[in-house]
């Protein structure tokens, strides 16, 4: 497991908490949504940095009111072909204004990383060995022409309102 951020592998300050495990009061832990819903009172008044792990298929409305409590939200790609988290990321960024770290985890492959970034993800947990090697060797793909606006700053192209370049 390695964490990719801003074009480099970085140390991961966060730790995943399994269902039923007691989180340390210092925070920097990523809590499963169910766990958070049951134990949220325990964090009343605490400023410890918290992360939230959300499975695909969970409606964002279920935790929308708590979004600003989290410094990190982690969305899961159970298989690279399960694209629900792409839409969830855009909704979190564009509709719900989430500004914390948006982390992709699960089956995160090299050729999807730029698409994930364009939907608003900014960190990527890499478990595929080939992806990790290729990222180390050549970095993530960096296409410069898009036919639709993304969540990252991008400049419109010519008169086409749907076409973009990196801003």
């Amino acid at each position: 497991m390695a964490l990719w951020k801003n074009g480099a592998f970085v140390d991961d300050a966060w730790r995943e908490i399994a269902e039923g495990e007691d989180p340390p009061p210092a925070g920097h832990v990523i809590l499963p949504l169910d766990w958070w819903e049951q134990e949220r009172d325990a964090f009343e008044g605490s400023n410890a940095p918290l992360g939230l792990r959300v499975a695909p298929g969970v409606p964002i409305e279920r935790f929308a009111r708590d979004i600003n409590r989290f410094a990190l939200i982690e969305l899961v790609f159970p298989k690279f072909g399960d694209g629900r988290a792409f839409s969830m990321a855009r909704l979190l960024r564009e509709r719900h204004g989430f500004r914390g770290e948006l982390r992709a985890t699960g089956d995160v492959l090299i050729d999807q990383i730029q698409m994930m970034a364009r939907c608003g993800f900014d960190t990527f947990q890499i478990s595929d060995a080939t992806t990790e090697r290729l990222l180390r060797e050549r970095g993530a793909p960096a296409y410069k022409r898009f036919y639709q606006p993304g969540a990252t700053p991008e400049a419109p192209v010519d008169s086409r309102p749907w076409a973009r370049r990196p801003g």
Partner: peptide, 16 residues
């Protein structure tokens, strides 16, 4: 054509 362009390598809608 407009739909073709907009849908080309759409970052959100390539793994439906």
């Amino acid at each position: 054509e407009i739909l073709r362009q907009w849908s080309s390598i759409h970052p959100e809608f390539t793994f439906l």
